[in-house]
Design a protein around this nucleic acid. Structure first.
Lengths: 208, 208, 208, 208
DNA sequence: GATGAATGAGGGTTCATTCAT
DNA sequence: GATGAATGAACCCTCATTCAT
């Protein structure tokens, strides 16, 4: 499905508001006002509020799979360097798309949202899982990674650390003096990324 | 602040609905109906919807600090056994209170909820952080734990892994055949706990 | 009907709030809070909100008739001096009771308030009218006052001028630099009183 | 600001109900029912209950200034005839707009209504005052009117007499056998008007 | 294709009053 | 006699959506 310029303008506003105020906390009036469009446009373009969220997910989740393959098959790097690269890339992706992730995390885990189709999100999760699984298994066969690892839970550790940090940003802001978006981005791409890399490498290479 | 029997009944319903439908997604009428009370009771007892959430947080966050001290000072266990115990306890606590955590995670990270007082939650986070910090530093001084650790990010790794798993439960349900609350609880207290223990221990004891 | 100390305390608060916020604009909660009593006391003591207003009217309108007789029969003063005295007294009375008058003026002229019994107010109006009528007729027989006067409309002129000034106080505040209660009282008892005296005397003594 | 047909229909109902039941005593439901519109229309058209009152004031106070100029500059009439004309016109205007005046008198003098913008009303009052002031001063210079007059209080005397009569209509109904709207109008335009004309002329021409 | 007008439903809150104690 | 707890009804307002144009 293609989106025209106006639809994209709306979706950009929607993403911002949904991530800040939540799906139920955002009204179509706010969206219409902030996007400077008529309120009827929303229903007209997307059908309903729910459908609009689905469109947003689809719009944001579309172009993810491509990047990863490249990294994983890069033969110049060894397995430790490659996991560093993967984590770096995952965090960059999550940071860039943190808004849509927040929306999805919340709505996806709610019983009430059974009407919303999260196929795009789930598909992407499956792909990421498959890629990581394949990568770690190769590392295990190459004798670099420990065999005693619950592969399915590696991604929750990477992503979970990142998002838990993000959702408690106010709390960590004091601890690490993060006071604006720039410092947040910097902390994320340096300190936080390093911590996660360190953690995952320790897990993957630990003997016991 | 003390809560009487009726207030607790309401808060129990509120916790369930808020965690399933979100704060904005839950109406006072739903709460009143499910708790079998008059809708005016909500305002009467708590003042407002926002205050009701604060009361819920206060009610649930009240009795946490006590448990941890005991574990941390248990001299019979060595540092590796103690970190296992701590993680086990943290996960049990989070699992038990997963509903209120979900609510708080979402609302705490929303700009719109600046009116709500999350002091209880933040206080508890601070305490948990202080205890973990103290524990790890002791382990470092004892020469058991590596000195190259970002202590503030250890908790996000523990809690983040757990919650990311939880919020994507539908996804992992297929992977690990989790189909009801019992199997979820079992998986959490065994496989997931073990993974997190393994990860954190690897991180803490890793040389490099 | 007698009122005990607590009832009087309530009625004092009620008079203030009703005159500032109106009957419908004042809630029993506000009254209870300001009078520092339990909210149930209001219904308990007066039966209902409407009955409470009736009690207030009764309480305030009780002791009016006595003062006037004295002035009217004061033989030491001539008819021009006596009308001055009467107007002075009327304005003092109205100023002192301006709050209850405002309430009554509004509610008495409302169709919806047919439930409320304004007997006390009407009785007092009748008496005042009878006294003024008698006084002017005596003045006419004495040849001091003109015979071409609509006696029933003299009181509206006196009271109306006063209340119109009062109800548009904000407007006149600029014109006459009235900025607090003291300056209001001073203006009322001097300039405004003089204007009304001058007007009524001109009317009563005008030949044509 | 222009009002469409439907808005005017609503405002007509609003004026009637507000003047009979008061601002706080009238619910949007009553208005919606009587105007035969959906209750949401009120907020849709005017924004809020308060704004609706402002719109009503604006709607009613819009076209006043024009009439007066004509009368005041009518050179065919002498100063006594002209003050008669002015009073006649003022009373006609007030009678015609008695409802909105009642609403404004009450709400304008209430502390609670500080949110409502009475600019239109105040502006009109200022204009009327300026015109009367100018007219009387001209009469004084022409040697027709006494110089010993508090000009700012002449309008309260004219308007006050009228409104005090109106607000105590129930009382005067007995005295002057006024039992329907026709007899009220007749009394107002004849007897009451004459009384006020007589009073003001006596005041303006009185020597002392 | 796009939109202003309009609406039924429901939102959170406050109301005056009652009743058991 | 006095009061805290409780309630049904109503409050104003906003919601997502529809429909005629």
């Amino acid at each position: 499905m293609e989106f025209n310029e106006k639809q994209i303008r709306i979706l950009t506003v929607v993403e911002k508001l949904f991530s800040e105020l939540g799906f139920d906390g955002t009204s179509l009036r706010q969206i219409a006002k902030e996007a400077d469009i008529n309120i009827a446009m929303v229903s007209y373009y997307f059908g309903s509020k729910e459908k609009m969220l689905e469109s947003l997910i689809q719009y944001r989740m579309g172009d993810f799979r491509l990047q990863m393959d490249a990294v994983m098959k890069n033969d110049e790097l060894d397995y430790l360097q490659r996991i560093d690269k993967i984590i770096e890339m995952l965090i960059k992706r999550m940071y860039k798309n943190r808004r849509i992730y927040k929306i999805v995390h919340f709505e996806y885990s709610s019983k009430s949202r059974s009407k919303i189709d999260f196929k795009c999100y789930v598909d992407q999760k499956k792909e990421t899982y498959a890629l990581i699984k394949n990568f770690i298994e190769n590392g295990q066969e190459a004798g670099v990674y420990s065999k005693n690892i619950n592969i399915g839970l590696v991604i929750p550790t990477i992503l979970g650390t990142f998002f838990h940090f993000l959702y408690n940003q106010q709390f960590f802001a004091e601890l690490y003096t993060i006071d604006d978006e720039d410092s947040l981005k910097k902390f994320t791409t340096t300190t936080l990324t390093q911590h996660i890399q360190q953690t995952i490498k320790a897990l993957l290479t630990n003997e016991k």
